[in-house]
Write a protein that binds this DNA or RNA. Structure first.
Lengths: 133, 133
DNA sequence: CTCCATGCAAAGCGTTTGCAAAAGG
DNA sequence: CCTTTTGCAAACGCTTTGCATGGAG
C-alpha cells in the first residue's frame, strides 16, 4: 500500500506512513477523529488537516473508500465491492461481501427511465449479534 | 397529513401547516435549507429551528422520512418502503420503487453472523437521463 | 390558563481552507 | 533546490440548543 502511494506520485512522509499502517488492517471503519486520536500518541504534533489530507489522497488513488452513514465520515480500507451492515444499538459497522446469488441488476423501472447505474450501495440496518439479546 | 399531526398530539401552528403543505407533494427530496428559503416568502420571520423542529416532529410520527447522502439531510414525504437513485453529475435524487423480483433476503453470511436485518437501504449511483449524454 | 411552539442567537460538530514553515525526492 | 506536505488556526456548512416571548388548545 505504501508502494502504491509512491507510485501515485505522493510523498512518503512519516505521517502518511503512520496513517496507512493504522488503517491498513482496521476493520472498524474509523472516523478521522478516531484515527487522529490514535495517531496523536505517536505524533503529538499531528494536525487534523493532515489526517483528512492523507485520507483524501488515499481515496483519490483508490486505496481506501469512505462511508457516509450520517454523522462523521468513516474510512474503509476494503476496496473490494461490498456492502455494509450497521447495528442500530451500538453503531458497529461490518462489511458484507457481495453475494452473487442476491445481487442483481438495477430495477427495470430505473433503467427504463434512462438512469445509468454505475454503483450500488446497500446498508443493512438492524441489530448485531451482541445487541440482539 | 395535517389530521395525522393533530392525532399525534402536536399543535397545528401556521408554520407547521405551511411546512406540511410544502413537502407533501414534493418529490425533490429538499433539504431544510431549501424548504426554509421557500417558506421564507410566506413567513419572513420563520426560524431555521422551526423547520428542523417540524421536520423532526413529522419524522417522529412516521409522516416523513429522511435521507442522508452526504451533505445536508434531505426530507422525503414518501413513507412507503423504497430506495433512491442519485445522479453523480447533477445530484438529482429519485425514488426507486422496491422491485419484488430484485429485492431478496439479507445475505446468508450476514444472517449467519447473528445480525438481524430490520431495514435495507439502497442507493443507486450513476448518471440520470439528462446527464448521460 | 397552561403548555407547547416559535424566533433568535449562539454554540456545536465535522470538515475545509489559507498560509508560512518544514521536509521529501 | 523545487514542490509537496505539514501544522496551525480560522472559516465553513449543517444542525442543535437555551431561553424568553407568543400562540394553540
Amino acid at each position: 500500500m505504501l508502494a502504491d502511494l509512491k507510485r501515485a506520485g505522493l510523498k512518503l512522509t512519516p505521517q502518511r506512513i503512520a496513517i496507512v499502517r493504522e488503517i491498513a488492517d482496521d476493520l472498524s471503519h474509523p472516523t478521522a477523529q478516531a484515527l487522529f486520536e490514535r495517531l496523536r500518541v505517536a505524533f503529538p504534533t499531528m494536525s487534523f488537516a493532515t489526517v483528512y489530507n492523507t485520507l483524501d489522497a488515499l481515496a483519490g488513488c483508490g486505496l481506501t473508500g469512505s462511508l457516509n452513514l450520517g454523522g462523521a465520515v468513516r474510512f474503509d480500507p476494503n476496496t473490494e465491492p461490498h456492502h455494509h451492515a450497521v447495528c442500530d444499538a451500538c453503531g458497529m459497522v461490518v462489511d458484507v461481501d457481495v453475494d452473487v446469488a442476491i445481487d442483481a441488476a438495477a430495477p427495470a423501472t430505473l433503467s427504463a427511465s434512462g438512469f445509468r447505474v454505475l454503483r450500488e450501495e446497500r446498508i443493512y440496518r438492524g441489530l448485531c449479534d451482541r445487541c440482539t439479546s
